[in-house]
Simulated assay, not measured.
Amino acid sequence: MLSAPGLLFFILGCAALTAPYMTLAANRIVAGDGFRAWQLAAPGPSVLALGVLAAGLAMGVLGAWPTLRVIGAALGLGALIWLLTLGSTTLLDGAGEYARVSPAAGFWCLVVVLALLLADGLTNLSPGPWARLGILGVILGLLAALLTSGLLSQLSIMQEFSSRKPAFFDALSRHLWLSLGSLLLAAIIGLPLGIACYRKPRLQDTLLPALSFLQTIPSLAMFGIMIPLLGWVGDTIPGAQAIGIAGIGFAPAFIALVLYSLLPVVANTAAGLGSTPPAAQEAARGMGMTFIQRLAKVELPLGLPIILAGLRIVLVQNIGLAVIAGLIGGGGFGAFVFQGLNQTAIDLILLGALPTVALALVAGVLMDILVALTQPHTRHVSESAP
């Protein structure tokens, strides 16, 4: 039996091979010349690498064995890395001191296709939350080993990283502070508001539309609104600038992210508490529980998966929105993105964009695992396991 998604991925992968796989440029700024995958090395290694890639894509077509689809995706990704290393050495040979090689559209399309094939195979295997955590750990470990091995050191993006290593880790720290810190503050504010909305539906009818209105404001406009407001606070209130409150920088970006985060937190908290079965509420009342006891022992535990789903939305959203903070001096990976745009340096843009995407994917998977662990069925299985 054939897998329809696997067949689609096979066709898309074959089409991606017709696009340039790598580019060679005279320096980091000018546009490079594209080279197809079979032009990157001698015929023998190229044919072997392409054969492994084609075999990996073909294994994805077999619908009855999802494990083979996972193995095929892993083989295909390994072949992609092999082609990169072959191409880097071949293209840079005699190209000049300032020459740069970079992955091109064909490579990125194949990465997406094989990642989707891997996700499809894992979905059909239906691993439990702890197995998913283990798989994520293996993937991150392999990625870390690859990046630190030096195999990709000739690529332009790795050279950008090497020349900006301290700035990169500073941007990573600032990006995490923006996204995780705004999530924490939004939770501190939003969870009590969500409980209040659950208790008083009239408050919910007033508050949620107001928070929805904040979501309609474009992110650039929101950051722009924060600049004059916090600039006035910093100039007017003694000591405000000493703690970092100013028109540009970390503070306006952080507050804007908190405002964007409130709607999912408040709405999902109210919805999660409201999802408690009436029978469970009546039983709690019959046992003489107070409101606080019902909230702590019945409603919050049963509504926790929905509440965590709201926090997941906020975390992934804030990791992406934090990039725009680079426009107002907020730091984070957005600084690399906008520097690259100003310099027309694609690899500098990727140095900011790719870690952002990776952070969002990892955060989303971790939050999904946490949501799964809080599901009543999952908790029951975990507690009854020997």
Rank of each mutant, 00 (worst) to 15 (best):
L183S: 04
G231H: 02
A253R: 03
V101M: 04
F169L: 07
T18L: 15
D235G: 06
A104W: 12
G329E: 14
A115Q: 08
G234C: 06
A325D: 12
S153C: 02
G334A: 13
A25W: 04
G190A: 14
Q281A: 14
Q293R: 14
L62S: 05
L40R: 12
V365E: 12
A279S: 13
F223I: 15
L50T: 12
L12V: 04
M222Q: 11
G181T: 05
V357H: 06
L259E: 07
I369M: 06
A4K: 15
I188A: 11
H380I: 11
V323P: 02
S46T: 15
L327D: 04
V357E: 05
A196Q: 09
A322D: 01
S88E: 14
P127Y: 14
V371W: 01
L84E: 11
A253T: 15
Y198D: 03
I346G: 11
G181Y: 08
L83D: 03
L315V: 00
F223M: 15
W130E: 14
W232N: 05
A322E: 01
L146N: 11
A55V: 04
G190M: 09
G239M: 10
S102W: 04
L230Y: 07
Q343I: 10
A74I: 14
L257W: 02
L142Y: 07
L214E: 00
G63C: 13
G249R: 02
L321H: 07
P209Q: 07
W177G: 09
L263P: 00
C109P: 06
T290V: 04
L147F: 15
L62F: 10
Y21E: 00
V233P: 00
G150N: 04
P166C: 12
G320R: 10
S88Q: 13
L211M: 02
